[in-house]
Amino acid sequence: MQIHPSIETYSGPPPVLTMGTFDGVHPGHHALLRELVRLAKALNTVSVVLTFWPHPRLVLGHDPEKLRLLNTLEEKTRILSETGIDHLVVLPFTTELAQLSASEFTTHILAEQLRTRHLLVGFNHRFGKDGVRSEELDALATRLGFGLSRYQPVEVDGQRPSSTRIRQLLLAGRVPEANALLGYAYSITGRVVGGQQLGRRISFPTANLQVNERAKLLPPDGVYACRVRITGKTFGGMVNIGVKPTVNTQMDHRSVEVHILDFGEDIYSEEISLEFLHKTREEMKFEGLEALKAQLRKDETEIRKLLQRHGLPT
């Protein structure tokens, strides 16, 4: 897959194209992209995904503090690279772009600049300042001379996967259900930074994570079983998200820290990824460090059992 940071860097043949934010790149997206690749081969041309960054809501100010992304641009690019598409074009989303009507966007960007041969859209896809109804898009395709087809939704265990629904499940702590709709384990990536070193004093050293993307969704406060990816290796881990109420009086500060099982290396400043598998309990406040340590032992026993179910050696 070739990556283009702007429309101007794409110089391939007139493509079969689809577009969207693709946050999460869930099974519904994958089904659409398989059809995109099939159509491109049938028409003897290339497949192009046009996506937008930053997320339009962050630019337009539509409750940006409430928006939480399932994927960073780097994560989305990595997942899309595994789908078989030929080109990914990242269109910088600006307030000027947001002012384009659907007709202007289709004419100037899809037809004139990308020379789209065939447009594939999801069944409920809307775009442009004014949105575009189905019959209006049909008329635009006819006038501008490109093919048009729509892809119907898919279901996973009787549910239609959607980025909104996946966010709702994650924010409710229902991690296995969210992962089922995602098609993979939800993850966050960040760099290990210095902490309070409390974990070492109670024999549960933790790596404190500085998450790379400010708008990235963090699961709710609590304790989680996770897979930890470090420099190509995989370990089990127990993650705490929250304000650490036993030792931290700054209640407006959320932290992400992971105790990596059977691991003793210094990974300060390393980048690691956490893949969430289960939420095991809510964050709790303890009478003191001994009570905290006793609970952590219980957490470790439970989390090791959960990790075994996911094929991780413990």
Rank of each mutant, 00 (worst) to 15 (best):
Y268W: 08
L144W: 06
I260F: 11
D138T: 15
Q308D: 03
S134F: 15
G131A: 10
G173A: 13
P219E: 08
Y186W: 08
Q197Y: 04
R115I: 05
R201K: 15
P14A: 14
E290D: 14
F22P: 00
T314H: 05
L307Q: 01
L73W: 14
E136A: 02
T9V: 01
K216E: 13
A102V: 02
L119W: 08
T94R: 07
R200A: 12
V193Y: 11
H62E: 11
P161A: 02
L110N: 08
S187W: 13
T45M: 07
F276C: 09
E155W: 08
H62M: 13
A294E: 15
V256E: 10
V59L: 02
D221E: 12
R281G: 03
L88S: 10
S163K: 06
A141D: 10
G194V: 09
V211W: 07
G145K: 06
A291F: 11
E74T: 14
A291P: 13
E35T: 15
N208F: 02
K298R: 09
M1V: 09
G194D: 07
K298C: 09
V239N: 13
A141G: 11
I241D: 00
R229V: 15
V16H: 06
F146A: 01
R297M: 12
F263P: 04
S81A: 08
E74A: 15
R38M: 12
F105C: 09
H62G: 00
V89E: 08
L50F: 06
E177W: 03
I272V: 01
F105Q: 07
L218Y: 06
G131E: 06
P176L: 05
I272F: 00
E275I: 10
Q196L: 13
F286W: 05
K298F: 00
R254F: 01
S269G: 02
T206R: 11
G311V: 08
T72D: 04
E155Q: 13
F286T: 09
S163Q: 07
P161D: 03
F127V: 10
I7L: 13
R297F: 15
A225H: 06
Y151L: 11
G128L: 06
P15M: 05
T18L: 07
P5V: 13
I202W: 00
T249I: 05
L43H: 05
H62F: 12
F263D: 09
V132R: 03
F123L: 00
E82V: 02
H87M: 05
A225D: 04
G173T: 14
E104F: 02
Y224R: 01
G128Y: 12
H4S: 07
E300V: 09
R143A: 15
T314W: 04
L110P: 09
V90Y: 05
E65H: 12
K244T: 03
L312I: 08
